[in-house]
């Protein structure tokens, strides 16, 4: 199949960027989206052009490194799928595909489709952990955890930190990401001692990074490759309120 690509090109943070059109020829439907870009890039390199820079690593949907807005949808239109797991069989021959980076002030563009997501790390630094130095832990069975809680905590913990939620949110809010971590830890007994303080500091950090506020539009969960549910945001809000009631 053949495709017309309209990709965002931006040489660096200071450049203002523009959409550039490329033709992708002889694309196999078994290729992943990134493999398709690999092929385009190989041609660009040989032509002496700058290949389209994009982040990726594991290529199996777990590291959270890849991510681009494809035809207006973060990670593309296939639900619960990262860009690297999106396959060309879902596109039509002859289609035009627009490719843009995550767009949010706290995620400045580094180059082309590569953005800086270190704001997420700083949100975790603000409290997304349980304070247990190595070697100080009690026996793992000393604290049973209800299976349902463990399962729900796991569901929240599967967030891969890709940032699609921010990219899709009309407010540029990082609520789903932040809430996923807060929920993961607040559902487990191990997370209780720091629970309230954690919610406050993480939410405050999220604001300080310049993300927007959540108005519960649900775009985030719809594009989230791990299907992190909106309940997590309710849980975060509830913990945040408790923190402020203190």
């Amino acid at each position: 199949m053949n495709l017309t690509l309209k990709a965002w090109r931006q040489s660096g943070p200071k450049d203002s960027g523009r959409m550039v059109t490329y033709q992708a020829k002889d694309v196999s439907p078994d290729m992943s989206f990134l493999e398709m870009l690999d092929v385009v890039n190989e041609q660009l390199i040989l032509a002496g052009d700058d290949p389209i820079a994009f982040d990726h690593d594991c290529r199996e949907g777990i590291c959270g490194m890849c991510g681009m807005v494809i035809n207006g949808v973060a990670h593309g239109e296939q639900r619960a799928t990262t860009t690297c797991q999106l396959h060309m069989r879902h596109f039509e021959d002859g289609a035009t595909v627009t490719i843009e980076p995550w767009r949010a002030a706290p995620f400045p563009v580094v180059k082309d489709l590569v953005v800086d997501r270190s704001a997420f790390d700083r949100i975790i630094q603000a409290g997304g952990f349980v304070s247990v130095p190595a070697g100080s832990a009690p026996d793992a069975h000393s604290l049973p955890v209800r299976k349902e809680d463990a399962d729900d905590a796991f569901d929240a913990a599967t967030c891969i930190g890709c940032g699609a939620c921010v990219a899709a949110c009309p407010n540029g809010s990082a609520s789903l990401f932040t809430a996923a971590k807060i929920t993961h830890l607040s559902l487990l007994p191990q997370g209780q001692p720091e629970r309230i303080a954690r919610a406050k500091s993480m939410v405050d950090q999220m604001d300080a990074e310049g993300f927007g506020g959540c108005t519960n539009t649900g775009e985030c969960t719809a594009v989230c490759p791990k299907g992190i549910p909106l309940d997590t945001i309710a849980r975060m809000n509830s913990d945040y309120l408790k923190a402020n009631a203190k």
Partner: peptide, 10 residues
Amino acid sequence: IDQAVAQGVP
């Protein structure tokens, strides 16, 4: 295992 569980690994 003890360490991971204490960290909240689900």
